[in-house]
Design a protein around this nucleic acid. Structure first.
Length: 145
DNA sequence: ATAATGACGACTC
DNA sequence: CGAGTCGCCATTA
């Protein structure tokens, strides 16, 4: 590829810049946007949110983003749970976990005996196919065979 | 620029 | 099933 008009260079540069940037410019907003898309009465895991936000290998980032989330934000953070439907918020704030659970129950989300959301019934279906799952080392090993 | 941290995820014991 | 450990990546100090 050789000739590229300078007029286009501008747009190209911009695109490259966005792609090259780690994410400090779009990571958070994307995560918040993804969380906001979770329907009422449904929940999504951090992994799902990460995948939807374009960070399939950084499930910790959504957690970080939500942690930085200011109170009163329009983001339904309570609909984000850890893998298995567990409320990992208890790790940071036990009280927060209680609030989360109450809010979820208020939306009709069911919990099992261990205080975990019944993902089988309430996991956000959309992400189910978008997230899927990356090949595990074991799977790769089996595949190599 | 390097080091430490984290509302995770998955594996192993 | 619960607790401990490693890996991943981005953010913060």
């Amino acid at each position: 590829m050789a000739s590229r008009k300078p007029v286009k260079k501008r747009a190209a540069t911009r695109r490259v810049r966005e792609a090259a940037l780690p994410a400090s410019n779009s990571s958070y907003p994307r995560i918040y946007a993804a969380v906001r898309r979770i329907p009422r009465g449904k929940v999504a895991t951090y992994g799902q949110i990460a995948a939807l936000a374009g960070l399939p290998h950084a499930p910790r980032v959504p957690g970080y983003a939500l942690h930085a989330l200011p109170p009163g934000s329009p983001v339904p953070w309570h609909r984000v749970v850890a893998a298995g439907g567990k409320l990992s918020l208890g790790r940071l704030s036990l009280d927060g976990a209680t609030t989360q659970r109450l809010r979820l129950e208020h939306e009709g989300v069911a919990f099992d005996g261990r205080g975990c959301v019944v993902l089988a019934k309430h996991q956000w279906a959309v992400a189910a196919r978008a997230v899927q799952s990356r090949p595990r080392a074991r799977d790769l090993d089996a595949d190599l065979d």
